[in-house]
Computed example of a mutant assay.
Amino acid sequence: MWDRLLTDCHVATMVPRPGDPLGIVSNAAIGIADGKIVRVGRRAELAGYRAKEVVPLGGAWVTPGLVDCHTHLVFGGNRAAEHAMRRAGASYEEIAQAGGGIASTVNATRGSSTSELIDSARRRLHALMRGGCTTVEVKSGYGYDTASELRLLNVARALGEREPVRIASTLLALHALPKSADRAAYVDMAVEEMIPTVARLGLAQAVDGFCEGIGFLPHEIERLFDAADNHGLRVKLHAEQLSNRGGAKLAARYNALSADHLEHLDAPGAQAMAEAGTVAVLLPGAFYTLQEKLRPPVQLLRDHGVPIAVATDCNPGTSPLLNPQLAMNMACTLFGLTPEEALAGMTVNAAAALGLQDEVGSLSPGMEADLCVWRIAEPAELGYWVGLMPERRVFAGLDA
């Protein structure tokens, strides 16, 4: 006997078929047992099965729970003042050089107690959960030293333990260089101290870096990735956001889970990502906030068959975005994704960007029963409304 049987619904399984990118099953039912999906099929096909609880959904649509695969959710303070600076014409680099940007968030984070960090991050996490997220990636990166990075990762762990959501933690070991730091010594610390400690404590599943002129250079990222690989951690990379430093090719060479931003991606980088299976994570919130003009080359990604994910990039400076539906809408209106691509970008492809594609992001037997029920007429509505959350109910395998 199953634990739960959801009936009278339409399902976007996100397991594509020819001519059907969403893998739609109409007039469907879903069987759930032990927190996992047992069967997905037409309602008539599952009519003979018994369950402890039968839940009629009244013709609603069911999708996988949304996956936000790129956030900087844990931080102290905010950077609302930078909004005014940008409106006055200051660039990303100028704000950073004036003492703003990442450095100001590091200072505010250091000045916040652990309980304050948990409380503020929880409020942001709840906003994502209200939008349908059942899996959220959380990066560190606002610490500048090993002890501070460990504190941020422990906050992320606490969120995952206290909230009905799956947290995927990432050590953003090379985010920004402290103003007075010796560059070589700082990279040494990240490689020789930070990564081994985080790996030993099991506080992160992946390691990330910011490959950019105002961040870290490819040879420094190589050292970071070598250390991650030596300690059994997967890698991700902020790449080609402000310029082309060859970050996408570098990430692909290390079989990175994802390369993120990618406004300046070129054809060799796209080809390398395709061959490595590296997911392209598009971050329209940052593009919007920074008023960028060069869009990520979506058609290039399509042409090479690179999986495309979409994320909020929630952070205090360049993407104060806490609405996954708005992220999907922006991906369509700003970057030219189709509604189907945007939904795949926050489900199956986002799960792949975290290495979780065998657990979440699609609805098929054996997958976690992380799913959302939406009172909508068609899946395209999820990236259509601006400011209106469609009524929804979440069934999460974590507590099913």
Rank of each mutant, 00 (worst) to 15 (best):
W374F: 00
S180E: 15
G215R: 06
E192H: 13
R234C: 10
E45C: 09
V25H: 03
L265Q: 00
E94H: 10
V310H: 00
G59C: 02
T170W: 09
V360E: 03
E212T: 07
H264F: 13
G101W: 02
E292T: 07
Q97E: 13
A286T: 02
P339Y: 10
E149A: 07
D34W: 09
P16E: 10
A28I: 10
L356V: 06
P56A: 12
G336T: 02
F75S: 00
Y254F: 12
I221Q: 08
E212K: 07
G336N: 04
E161F: 02
E359H: 04
A311S: 08
A380T: 05
I24A: 06
T318E: 04
A185P: 06
V298R: 02
K249S: 14
M1Y: 08
E391V: 13
N329R: 12
R166P: 04
N244T: 02
G48F: 10
V74Q: 06
L326V: 03
G65W: 00
C69L: 01
R223W: 01
V281M: 05
A51C: 03
G23Q: 05
T13A: 14
R157Y: 03
G361P: 04
E341S: 04
G246R: 14
I24R: 09
Q291R: 15
A96L: 12
A400L: 14
W61K: 00
L343V: 08
F210Y: 12
A256C: 00
L334A: 01
G355I: 05
G132R: 01
I32V: 15
P307H: 07
V191A: 11
R17E: 15
M14H: 04
A350E: 02
I118P: 00
Q271G: 14
G336K: 00
G277I: 10
Y142P: 05
N27A: 09
N154L: 14
T13R: 04
V11C: 11
G213R: 15
Q299G: 11
E116K: 00
V138C: 03
H175S: 06
L322W: 13
A350D: 04
L150W: 10
G23K: 03
P316H: 05
A400D: 14
A185W: 12
G213K: 15
P365M: 03
V207R: 05
A274Q: 11
V55W: 14
R17K: 13
